[in-house]
Design a protein around this nucleic acid. Structure first.
Lengths: 221, 221
DNA sequence: GATATATTCAATTAATTGCTTGAATAATAG
DNA sequence: CTATTATTCAAGCAATTAATTGAATATATC
């Protein structure tokens, strides 16, 4: 074969390793989670509803295409995204959201009939935060809150929400957020709160998006 | 099944349509070419060494995942990249180049033993262009030159290079470029020129990269 | 050293994909 | 209207891939 042709074939073959890695829905979900922070195999398996063995295999595909890195910590293996990978994933998500109409449809269908799911006006929200006119809830697990959260938010993990209801002012509006548009923790939180007579709405954006928009993010307790 | 799980499955399934589209080396090559400008099926088939039927099928996969758009012009069907797609492709290329060591290896192996293939110092090159100290050749087909070229470059399509040799000053250094690091037109041009006693080197970057670096790009004859 | 836990490996199955071939559909030119 | 050219369609084959299952490794604890 022509050496020029051969060169191109070899090059694009290497490129396609990245493409193959992101051609599986489950691997994309794993990547999305990993872009929130490092995770063990077990946690990833639970979050994606996969068996541990299957999760491990997917992670190895991601590792072989250099999209994730692996680190042994005691009994656990902790996976994390490789540099630049989250930007790439974000770019892919953007193309998908902008070009594939079905995504908007699926979102609308899922949220149909639920209260408080309308998009929040961000500029108005920022003003209301400054006026202390609204309670912001971060309903993700506490570790994720510690790693970074919207400045001024309260850490109220979804499974503790019911217990902590008493501490929430009933007259103030509540804005709940989680990992982003495809994380459902905030959806469940808002449903629960509205069922209990609170006025709660969902902020679709996650911390990543919040940071990407240049808004203040805090970390720690 | 849990409706939350169902929602996520459906969403990531849609995302994976983009991933599946870029999981094939040949489709990546097609995308790369399309990011240089719109093309007919026939031309794409020739450039990628695929049969026309096979090219058409790949293009339909790209179309179904919304990465390319189609337009009938007389007897021809002209394909072009959808908005945002080239940025996405570029981001993917960057991840691949930075993370997959084999790519550098393949490049080096291909260029091994060829003269004038060492990377060109861009800042030095810019100065030399300003001093009119160097001849820049754009060795792509003339249509591509017209669509956009490095300011100050001469259009000398590779297949006309031998005929136009007489017009090139033999004492000045020649810098040839084409579509980018994986296009071999400039490689062949430099080999030919060095064989004929010229001092020629290859600029790896294409017009896209040149523009991305904020440098001046001209269009027209 | 034995046990428990987290992860990976290996083999199997069903489904999907890329490429080839030959025929079918447009759109244009004579 | 017929011939030509560009593209797409349809069927078939070989190769690849995702998920399942059960076993094997590795690390820590008792």
């Amino acid at each position: 074969m022509n050496p020029n042709r051969r060169f191109k074939d070899e090059i694009y073959d290497q490129f396609s390793r990245i493409g193959k890695a992101v051609s599986s829905p489950k691997r994309l979900e794993l990547l999305d989670i990993l872009c929130q922070g490092e995770r063990t195999v077990e946690i990833l398996a639970r979050e994606t509803s996969l068996t541990v063995a299957n999760t491990s295999q997917h992670l190895q595909v991601l590792k072989n295409s250099r999209l994730v890195e692996q680190q042994k910590k005691g009994l656990y293996v902790v996976y994390s995204p490789a540099p630049m990978v989250c930007e790439f994933f974000f770019s892919m998500r953007q193309v998908a959201e902008n070009r594939i109409a079905e995504i908007e449809q699926i979102k609308n269908q899922f949220l149909a009939g639920k209260k408080g799911m309308e998009p929040v006006d961000r500029d108005a929200l920022i003003k209301r935060i400054q006026n202390n006119d609204v309670t912001i809830l971060d309903v993700r697990p506490p570790e994720e809150f510690k790693a970074g959260h919207i400045d001024g938010a309260l850490s109220v993990p979804l499974n503790e929400l019911e217990l902590m209801l008493a501490k929430l002012p009933k007259n103030k509006e509540i804005v709940a957020y989680c990992r982003g548009p495809y994380c459902v923790l905030s959806v469940e939180a808002v449903e629960l709160l509205n069922g209990k007579g609170y006025h709660a709405v969902r902020l679709e954006e996650g911390v990543q998006d919040w940071r990407a928009m240049g808004l203040s993010v805090a970390s720690g307790e």
